[in-house]
């Protein structure tokens, strides 16, 4: 690699980078454990909600299973925080990485999808659905995109290792 880009120089000049760098032997595995706990919470709560909206386990009133979502949000926050630590420790490993870029894209689409769900009539419509009721196509599409994006984020996360830039050791 020729020259370190200004943004990367900035990340590497922060106290956070120094903190991760110095404490990496114990901090990195600890953050990975938290990251995996977070992804399980996210997949287990948001995933089950999406599957119900898509038509599996229709006996569940959607608004009742939506009560699990705050736990998924908790898992997501845990993963954003640990993700920031990973990135500040080795920014080049994630930035110059097709899997990392695709992961960011999937997260952005998932984010827009969440805005579409809570910012439109989809959310109040979902709350009115009775046990056994089939969700309208529009809400099913949002649930399908959500499920696909989070699985995509997971695939890309796992694939980061094999798409690291060649200069990374």
């Amino acid at each position: 690699m020729d020259e370190i880009a200004p943004w990367e120089q900035f990340v590497r000049s922060t106290a956070l980078h120094h903190f991760v760098y110095v404490n990496e032997p114990w901090l990195w595995p600890t953050c990975e454990i938290l990251h995996y706990l977070g992804l399980s919470l996210l997949l287990g709560t948001v995933g089950l909600f999406d599957l119900r909206v898509l038509g599996l386990a229709k006996g569940i009133p959607p608004r009742a299973i939506h009560r699990l979502i705050p736990w998924g949000v908790g898992g997501y926050i845990l993963n954003v925080l640990t993700g920031i630590l990973f990135f500040s420790g080795h920014p080049d490993q994630y930035f110059y990485n097709d899997a990392g870029r695709l992961k960011a894209l999937f997260m952005a689409i998932a984010g827009i999808n969440i805005l579409l769900f809570y910012g439109t009539t989809a959310f109040p419509e979902m709350k009115k659905l009775a046990p056994g009721a089939d969700a309208p196509m529009r809400i099913k599409a949002i649930a399908g995109i959500s499920l696909a994006m989070w699985v995509g984020v997971l695939i890309c996360g796992r694939m980061l290792t094999w798409f690291r830039p060649p200069f990374f050791h």
């Binding site: 997949l43 287990g44 009560r67 699990l68 997971l154």
Partner: peptide, 27 residues
């Protein structure tokens, strides 16, 4: 392995949370 672990552990934990009293509206 990671996707299925996340789903199995996550879904099972969500059911555990329901048993412990969270989201009581889920039969």
């Amino acid at each position: 392995h990671t996707i299925c672990m996340g789903f199995l552990a996550g879904a099972s934990s969500a059911i555990d949370l329901r048993i412990l009293g969270l989201a009581p509206g889920i039969p």
